[in-house]
Simulated scan of single mutants.
Amino acid sequence: MHRPKSTLEQWRILQAVVDYGGYAQAAEQLNKSQSSLNHAVAKLQYQLGIQLLEVRGRKAYLTEQGEVLLRRSRHLTQTVTELEQLASNLEQGWEPSLVIARELVYPMELLTDALAAFLPESRGTRITVVDTVINGTNELIVNNQVDLAICGVPPKGYIAEPLCDLEFHLVCHPDHPLASLGELEDDRELAQHLQIVIKDTGLNPSQEIGWLKAEQRWTVSNFHEAKVILAKGIGFCWVPQHLIQKEVAAGELVRLKMKGASTRRIVLTLVVPQRDNQGPASKLLESLILAKHADTSGDLMPYMLVEL
């Protein structure tokens, strides 16, 4: 009978070293010593007889052979993780905890309503809500790190249930120079001013999405921070309508109008990353979230503006 030369732990350590950009960073994330990680990868390479990593400077890089094997190892570790999770669900029957990824623009009031309805039936299930932006949301889905995810465009291969569409408005302070220009003919005027954008939460952002032509950009973590900056008369930003209704009504912010681009819309969807292993608590919460949007619908529109 053939006995494997390597262990799942060795492959998980290799994945962490690559994903976090080096032994020191991986050791911190895994709460292990750097020397133990070095030893595990060195032993794995010796057992396989193949060089998987090469260190240049302070960073470890995959070799060509290492890239092939790492890709295959991800399927293996993911399968084992899913198998263990399934066994846990079968044993416990009801999940002790649920993690929800919430795209930052999704109204927290809607999610809170669903959670409030879930609470009486929750059996003590602990809830963790993680605020994410674009690639950050999709990475959590692909890596099976969340039970439910409210996202924009889902990763390829995942089925998503539409929830609602959100409208974004281009806004600035009333004293900002852009506010006195009336309707803008095109985006050239915008490009001359400071733009406030929301940072993608992904570990490996791969593309830029939305209008990002301004030479000057300030990047912040959320729309609350963006609004604080706008209130000082600094910059312009695309902000979800529901987050600035009061400020616009009070005249604290003004909408900018531009021919053909005064408004943008996005659709938000609900994804269950591990549908085959979904437990009863997750199913209940999913149904409650969907129920909040049973009477709403929206058309697919361009995604939100962020800097990646």
Results as ranks from 00 to 15, higher is better:
6 S>W: 15
9 E>K: 13
9 E>W: 13
9 E>Y: 12
10 Q>I: 10
14 L>K: 01
16 A>C: 07
16 A>L: 05
17 V>Q: 01
18 V>T: 12
22 G>D: 06
23 Y>C: 12
28 E>F: 11
30 L>V: 04
30 L>R: 04
31 N>H: 11
32 K>F: 03
35 S>N: 14
45 Q>C: 09
47 Q>S: 14
48 L>Q: 02
50 I>Q: 15
51 Q>I: 08
58 R>K: 14
62 L>Q: 07
64 E>S: 15
65 Q>S: 05
71 R>G: 14
75 H>M: 07
75 H>K: 07
75 H>C: 03
76 L>Q: 08
76 L>D: 04
77 T>E: 10
77 T>G: 07
80 V>G: 10
80 V>L: 13
88 S>K: 12
91 E>Q: 14
93 G>R: 01
97 S>C: 10
98 L>Q: 04
101 A>Y: 11
102 R>E: 04
104 L>N: 09
105 V>P: 02
110 L>Q: 14
115 L>A: 09
116 A>M: 09
116 A>Y: 10
117 A>L: 13
118 F>Q: 09
119 L>R: 11
125 T>M: 07
129 V>A: 15
130 V>T: 15
131 D>C: 11
131 D>I: 04
132 T>G: 08
139 E>N: 02
140 L>S: 08
145 Q>M: 11
145 Q>G: 14
147 D>V: 05
147 D>H: 10
149 A>C: 14
150 I>V: 05
152 G>C: 09
152 G>E: 08
154 P>S: 04
154 P>R: 04
156 K>Y: 09
156 K>D: 10
157 G>E: 09
160 A>P: 00
162 P>G: 01
162 P>M: 00
163 L>G: 00
168 F>M: 13
170 L>P: 00
171 V>R: 02
172 C>V: 01
173 H>W: 02
174 P>L: 06
179 A>P: 07
180 S>C: 08
182 G>W: 03
188 R>Y: 10
189 E>M: 03
189 E>C: 02
191 A>N: 12
195 Q>A: 12
196 I>N: 02
196 I>P: 01
196 I>W: 01
198 I>C: 05
199 K>T: 05
199 K>W: 01
200 D>N: 12
203 L>Y: 10
204 N>A: 11
209 I>K: 05
212 L>S: 14
212 L>A: 13
213 K>G: 12
214 A>M: 09
218 W>V: 15
223 F>I: 06
226 A>W: 03
229 I>W: 04
230 L>Y: 00
231 A>W: 01
232 K>Y: 07
233 G>W: 01
235 G>W: 00
237 C>M: 03
238 W>T: 05
246 K>V: 13
248 V>P: 03
249 A>K: 12
251 G>D: 03
254 V>S: 04
256 L>V: 00
260 G>N: 10
263 T>H: 15
267 V>C: 08
268 L>Q: 06
268 L>W: 01
269 T>S: 15
269 T>I: 06
272 V>G: 04
277 N>Y: 07
280 P>W: 14
281 A>W: 02
283 K>V: 06
284 L>V: 07
284 L>K: 11
288 L>W: 13
299 D>I: 12
299 D>T: 13
300 L>M: 11
306 V>L: 05
306 V>M: 04
307 E>D: 15
308 L>Y: 15
